[in-house]
Amino acid sequence: MTNFLIDKLKNTNSGNFFLMAGPCAIEGEDVAFRIAEKIVTITDKLQIPYIFKGSYRKANRSKGGSFTGIGDEKALKILEKIGKTFDVPTVTDIHESGEAAMAAAYVDVLQIPAFLCRQTDLLIAAAKTGKVVNVKKGQFLSAGSMKFAVEKIVESGNNRVVLTDRGNTFGYQDLIVDYRGLPEMQSFGVPVVMDCTHSLQQPNQSSGVTGGKPELIETIAKAAIAVGADGLFIETHPDPANAKSDGANMLHLDLLEELLVKLVKIRKAVI
């Protein structure tokens, strides 16, 4: 990891990967705090630097009536409270240029969704906040194409860039992960994260609700650590079946610790 990211994390000097994890969306304070407390306990024990993840609003939904959020300010204040309570950095998505400064007032990392990774105005607005900017690779792009996203942010005066792979479009209703992309994106001089849950989505279902293959989260995560990913992104929830967003591909919270224990062992074996 580069120095700027270490500064944003609890630096345990463990040589571990870092973890971005939390619910897909902020559904309310109680469940968000429950998730954060559990993950902080696990990552502290395993010496894994941790960033709490939660979307304050979901702008990209298949159906118009799908859950989008509990209100921007309310959700952002929950993210801010979690960061202060547990002394961890926080990350959330932004969708339009005008949201960058608003979200930056509450969180440490601004995330650019995969479908928006080519939006120049959005990247520049995020860069100008001075926050770390995590750009998700579009599932329609090659890993090599992401160098232009990095250039846009760096040329705007911000070298605090992270890239996250979340799979590549494979047909109409599936994604596939090409692990060659991780070292290719690392060659741009930025930390690279593997999104272990969104890469298992099955989009464009006839029901209008995205499907997924959460049983393969461990497979994706193990391979990413073996390849040398700097970090992992995992959406997790105590009751995925009833989560208000992306429940079909989230990891059950009770399974997280066992998975991370295995991944730490792999990390130690490959470094």
Rank of each mutant, 00 (worst) to 15 (best):
I26V: 15
E27C: 03
G28H: 08
D30S: 14
D30W: 08
F33H: 13
I35R: 05
K38L: 04
I39Q: 04
I39T: 04
V40D: 02
T43K: 09
T43Q: 06
Q47R: 11
Q47A: 01
I48C: 04
I48K: 09
I51A: 09
K53N: 06
S55W: 09
S55R: 06
R57P: 01
R57K: 12
K58C: 06
A59F: 14
A59T: 15
N60K: 13
S62Y: 12
G64I: 15
G65W: 14
F67L: 12
F67C: 09
D72H: 11
E73D: 12
K74Y: 03
K77N: 09
I78W: 10
I78Y: 13
L79A: 00
L79T: 01
E80P: 01
K81G: 00
I82K: 01
T85P: 07
T85K: 15
T85A: 13
T85C: 03
F86T: 00
F86D: 03
V88L: 05
P89L: 02
T90I: 11
H95E: 10
H95A: 03
S97I: 08
G98K: 15
E99F: 09
A101C: 02
A103W: 03
A103G: 03
V107C: 00
D108R: 07
V109R: 07
I112K: 13
I112V: 14
A114Y: 08
A114K: 08
A114Q: 06
F115S: 14
L116E: 11
Q119G: 03
L122V: 15
L122Y: 10
L122I: 15
I124Y: 06
I124M: 12
A125T: 10
